[in-house]
Design a protein around this nucleic acid. Structure first.
Lengths: 338, 338
DNA sequence: CTGAAAGCGCTAACAG
DNA sequence: CTGTTAGCGCTTTCAG
């Protein structure tokens, strides 16, 4: 990598002249500008990013902390974050907490030393379960802005991007009720998470609102993702008379569909299913799974916009929550409503 | 963020004394060291990363360029890269090329200005299709090491991490032959990629080696990932007499399984299927898909090790290719061999 | 129009 | 044992 100094030597001018010329300063003659730029091009000069960061006291870099990159939802949010960041001239440093509080803490501290201008993150399961927030406050005290998405800490004053989880689950459940379904199973393997709790609440509210028509909701709580298949199968065997399933995470809907078919349920005649999945699982389903779809890439993009706003504000902003739309995609695992 | 200068003022000593004390220099008295460290702790001092990078001319950061983060293979490699990097004290800056040459080029140039100490990448489809390599050479000329994984450019002298794609596909196909299968369909939607070509070659070689027993291979080339379902269904309809499928990408095996079941094939009695998938799709399959499994996280970890070796060598190393193991996981979609 | 010098935060050679 | 100074690569004020 060639430096200004070396260019200056080549050109027999001072470093500052070269710098100004490259930045089209009005202080420099047109002729010199041309000459400098020409040589700079030849030597493929690029200003050193680190030096610029030090000088400007900003890195144009966003720290992104993701709980689990193998979860397609997070992969897609990351996709959205990266795309929007690139558009806005920011790079992203990615850390994966793998749902661990310690890793989350470590990543936060690692990058809060001038490496990034702000953070976008979704909280690790462990952090949320144990309600830890001191490490966030610590970062905010250092005037480094944070935007949380999906799993957010209500108690922390920062930017937040979510969907209306309560409403989405309410609508899904309501739809099944309107279909005429009477015994609905809620598959929940997000029990420890803020989003999971909200979705469960939404589903329960829908049932409660329809109580006059005696609907029933069975909640199947699943601890580990690896247990989904087994647990769902057991439940389907046990409750032979369920006629609808609403899955609040992004894979158990697909799993339930496969298992129900295996057990000779005719879908959607005997059993309706709505999942919280993204399009990516559709090729694995037949009939096509009806879903609540989060616009995950949009969540990422919105998070970037919100964070950049906060970075550029240069002053601590209060809590601000952005709610991103979701969509209800009725496909082959639900009946048209009567 | 508090700086050395500010600490020095608090302590009424010079900046260098503070610096040395924090680094346990033998030049500084034990008493001063204690005093300095105490105050530093109180103010939560952390050395500014950017300043250190500038000083040391190294960022302890790796640039990672991924073609498609929504592909589970890449997500898992990224997982491996991040984990190993963190262990070695490196951060990662992630860019997504989204299979575009221009985005790949841009990311490379963006980070080759002192932002990173080296690159780990898999080549964008467009880049590989059009055989572009000048941009890699450009980076290497600047003494920035590169490690490529999975999709590599043979012509470029750099670090490489791959699996033995030829052999893996050979083995899968050979297995089907040994099972007694006669008409095998190869589902290929990686036609433009180096890995795809190698896997096809491997399958063809297996067939050719078994020619005496008149085996047949039908190659189904699929252009776009969105066409997989339709194309596989058409093919299954057309060739009612195929008795085995080998899928060389990580989703079409699952798709083929679902479609075959829909068309009343009994799996694995009528039809054997082997895919190149990771474990994550297993909950979506019944019977469980037999697979060639790449150890994707291991690929990521190895790539990091290789890159760090090259970064620390401080001198351009020649081509070096690491081959990572894969495993053959026979599950429910294949018969035990006779 | 061009150049010298200071400073971003840090380390380290050298002086005292 | 502590302090001064130079320098990493860059921008920018101030002098000339």
């Amino acid at each position: 990598m060639i430096t200004l100094k070396e260019l200056a030597e080549q050109l027999n001018v001072s470093i500052s002249t070269v710098s100004k010329a490259l930045n089209d300063s009005s202080e420099i003659s047109e002729k010199t500008i041309q000459r400098v730029k020409e040589i700079a091009k030849i030597y493929n000069y690029k200003p050193n990013k680190v030096a610029l960061s030090l000088k400007n006291n900003q890195t144009k870099t966003i720290g992104v902390i993701i709980p689990n990159i193998l979860n397609h939802f997070f992969a897609k949010v990351l996709y959205g974050i990266e795309k929007e960041s690139a558009k806005k001239g920011y790079s992203i440093i990615t850390c994966l907490s793998n749902e661990s509080y310690n890793r989350e803490l470590h990543s936060l501290q690692l990058l809060a030393n001038g490496s990034v201008d702000g953070f976008i993150m979704s909280i690790a399961e462990e952090t949320q379960k144990e309600k830890k927030t001191a490490h966030f406050e610590n970062i905010l005290t250092q005037k480094i802005p944070i935007v949380m998405f999906d799993r957010v800490a209500d108690a922390v004053e920062c930017g937040k991007v979510v969907i209306d989880d309560f409403e989405a689950a309410y609508k899904a459940t309501k739809y099944l009720i309107n279909e005429g379904r009477k015994k609905i199973m809620l598959v929940n393997c997000l029990d420890e998470l803020s989003v999971g709790k909200l979705r469960v609440k939404g589903a329960l509210q829908a049932i409660s609102d329809a109580k006059a028509f005696s609907r029933e909701l069975i909640e199947l709580k699943i601890k580990a993702i690896n247990d989904i298949e087994k647990e769902v199968e057991t439940a389907i065997r046990k409750f032979k008379d369920i006629d609808a399933i609403v899955s609040i995470d992004n894979i158990s809907g697909v799993v339930a569909l496969n298992i129900a078919k295996k057990h000779q349920f005719s879908i959607p005649k005997d059993l309706s299913i709505i999942g919280f999945s993204d399009d990516n699982v559709l090729p694995f389903t037949s009939p096509k799974l009806s879903t609540i779809t989060q616009h995950s890439d949009d969540i990422g993009a919105k998070a970037v916009q919100l964070l950049i706003k906060r970075i550029e504000a240069k002053t601590h902003l209060n809590n601000e929550t952005l709610t991103v739309n979701y969509s209800v995609n009725l496909r082959g695992t639900t009946l048209p409503v009567k």
